[in-house]
Amino acid sequence: MEYMSQEGYDKLVAELQQLEKVELPQVRDAIAEARDKGDLSENFEYHAAKREQGRLLGRIRFMQRVLENARVIDTSKLSSDSVGLLCKVDMTNMNNQAHMAYTIASPHEANLREGKISIKSPIAQALLNKKVGDIVEVQVPAGMLKLRIDNITRLI
């Protein structure tokens, strides 16, 4: 079972519909068009379209499984006194006094450019259930990070 936000769930549903209703029919048309060109053994367009069809079908099956096991979290029932899923955590790196903020998200919603890290990441795992003022140490590839939690905000 995967917990996620309503926004993340809606994005996955929209992407799945895009794949099923737009991209897959385009690939099927490309296969039919390439098949009409004759000899399939040396037809690059046909083999490329078949590979793309396989990739799309695999992605569609994966997304269907994710959505079948997804549970949307009701954020109104969550407290903001400790770090958990769908929390924005403001913290200070005690090694260099740099300030950073991350939102703890499901693995399917994680996107570092948007400031969302996976709940399964080492930093999120170290932050879980901690409170404002707590200092956590976490081992990352660059070394040991020492982080102080400055603020916790629940997403609405």
Rank of each mutant, 00 (worst) to 15 (best):
T103A: 01
K11C: 06
N96C: 06
S82V: 09
I117C: 00
F44V: 15
A48P: 03
R61G: 11
H47M: 13
D150L: 06
R113L: 11
L57I: 13
M94L: 13
H99N: 09
V83D: 05
G8W: 01
E45C: 07
N95H: 08
R65W: 09
R59M: 14
P25Q: 11
I104R: 00
S41R: 09
T75Y: 00
N69W: 07
G143Q: 05
R65Y: 11
M63L: 15
I31A: 10
V136L: 01
V72K: 12
E52V: 08
E109G: 05
T92E: 15
G133F: 04
L67P: 00
P122I: 08
Q64P: 00
E2C: 07
L86T: 04
V136P: 03
E2Y: 15
R71F: 12
Q53M: 12
L147I: 07
L78R: 12
L155I: 10
D74G: 02
E114D: 06
E42M: 11
P25A: 11
N111C: 07
I60Y: 10
K50M: 15
E137L: 07
V83L: 05
L16F: 07
L86K: 01
L127D: 03
K11I: 07
P25E: 11
S76F: 04
I149Y: 01
A126Q: 00
R61P: 06
L24N: 08
A49S: 05
K120C: 11
V138F: 02
I156E: 12
E114V: 00
K21W: 10
P122E: 10
R113Y: 05
A101F: 02
L85F: 03
V66N: 09
F62E: 15
K120L: 15
V136K: 01
I104K: 01
D74M: 01
L127Q: 01
D150E: 13
T75G: 01
D36P: 03
L40G: 03
K77S: 11
H108D: 13
P25D: 12
E45W: 09
Q125S: 06
H108T: 12
K50N: 09
E137Y: 06
L86Q: 02
G8F: 02
V22I: 14
E2K: 13
Y9V: 05
R71C: 12
S118C: 10
E42H: 14
D29T: 05
L128N: 01
E7Y: 13
D10K: 14
E68H: 14
D81F: 08
E45Q: 15
R148E: 13
L40I: 13
A34H: 03
N69T: 10
T92N: 08
N93Y: 01
A49N: 02
L24D: 10
E2G: 02
I104E: 02
V22F: 09
Y102P: 02
G115C: 04
L78W: 04
R35C: 08
S79E: 15
Y9R: 04
A14C: 00
H47L: 14
R61M: 14
T75E: 08
R61Y: 13
E2P: 04
Q17T: 12
R55W: 10
L147F: 04
G54W: 07
K21A: 13
